[in-house]
Deep mutational scan, measured.
Amino acid sequence: GTLHLNGVTVKVPSLEKAIKAAKKFAKKYNLEVQVHGNTVHVH
């Protein structure tokens, strides 16, 4: 999967790991997580 954090793109081995990391990051910075196919966006 691919993880987008505020314009930074990170390749992640699995989508589940990407979503987990995204949710952790989003919670910390009070951001929103959106999943588009195998790409996770945090903004």
Score class of each variant (00 low, 15 high):
Gly1Leu: 10
Gly1His: 11
Thr2Trp: 15
Thr2Asn: 06
Thr2Lys: 08
Thr2Arg: 07
Thr2Ile: 15
Thr2Gly: 05
Leu3Phe: 04
His4Leu: 12
His4Met: 12
Leu5His: 06
Leu5Phe: 15
Leu5Arg: 02
Leu5Ser: 03
Leu5Asp: 02
Asn6Pro: 11
Asn6Trp: 15
Asn6Gln: 08
Asn6Asp: 05
Gly7Glu: 03
Gly7Met: 08
Gly7Leu: 08
Gly7Pro: 03
Val8His: 11
Val8Gly: 04
Thr9His: 10
Thr9Trp: 13
Thr9Asn: 07
Thr9Met: 12
Val10Asn: 03
Val10Glu: 04
Val10Trp: 15
Val10Ala: 04
Lys11Asp: 07
Lys11Thr: 09
Val12Leu: 14
Pro13Glu: 12
Pro13Asn: 11
Ser14Cys: 10
Ser14Met: 07
Ser14His: 08
Leu15Cys: 00
Leu15Glu: 00
Leu15Tyr: 05
Leu15His: 01
Leu15Phe: 07
Glu16Lys: 11
Glu16Asp: 12
Glu16Met: 09
Lys17Val: 13
Lys17Ala: 14
Lys17Ser: 10
Lys17Glu: 13
Lys17Asp: 12
Ala18Cys: 14
Ala18Met: 06
Ala18Ser: 02
Ile19Pro: 00
Ile19His: 00
Ile19Ser: 01
Ile19Glu: 01
Ile19Trp: 05
Ile19Asn: 01
Ile19Asp: 00
Lys20Asn: 09
Lys20Met: 09
Ala21Val: 12
Ala22Met: 12
Lys23Tyr: 10
Lys23Ile: 13
Lys24Tyr: 12
Lys24Ala: 13
Lys24His: 09
Phe25Tyr: 13
Ala26Asn: 02
Ala26Glu: 01
Ala26Gln: 04
Lys27Asp: 08
Lys27Thr: 07
Lys27Ser: 07
Lys28Val: 05
Tyr29Leu: 05
Tyr29Ala: 03
Tyr29Glu: 01
Tyr29Asp: 00
Asn30Ala: 06
Leu31Ala: 05
Leu31Arg: 00
Leu31Lys: 02
Glu32Ala: 09
Val33Pro: 01
Val33Leu: 07
Val33Glu: 00
Val33Gly: 00
Val33Thr: 01
Val33Arg: 00
Gln34Arg: 12
Gln34Phe: 14
Gln34Tyr: 14
Gln34Thr: 14
Gln34Ile: 14
Gln34Gly: 04
Val35Trp: 08
Val35Phe: 07
Val35Thr: 02
Val35Gln: 03
Val35Lys: 04
His36Trp: 07
His36Asn: 10
His36Tyr: 10
His36Ser: 08
Gly37Ile: 07
Asn38His: 07
Asn38Phe: 12
Asn38Ser: 07
Thr39Gly: 03
Thr39Ala: 10
Val40Trp: 02
Val40Glu: 01
Val40Thr: 02
Val40Ser: 02
His41Gly: 02
His41Pro: 03
His41Phe: 14
His41Arg: 10
Val42Gln: 02
Val42His: 04
Val42Ile: 14
His43Met: 10
His43Pro: 01
His43Thr: 12
His43Ala: 08
His43Asn: 08
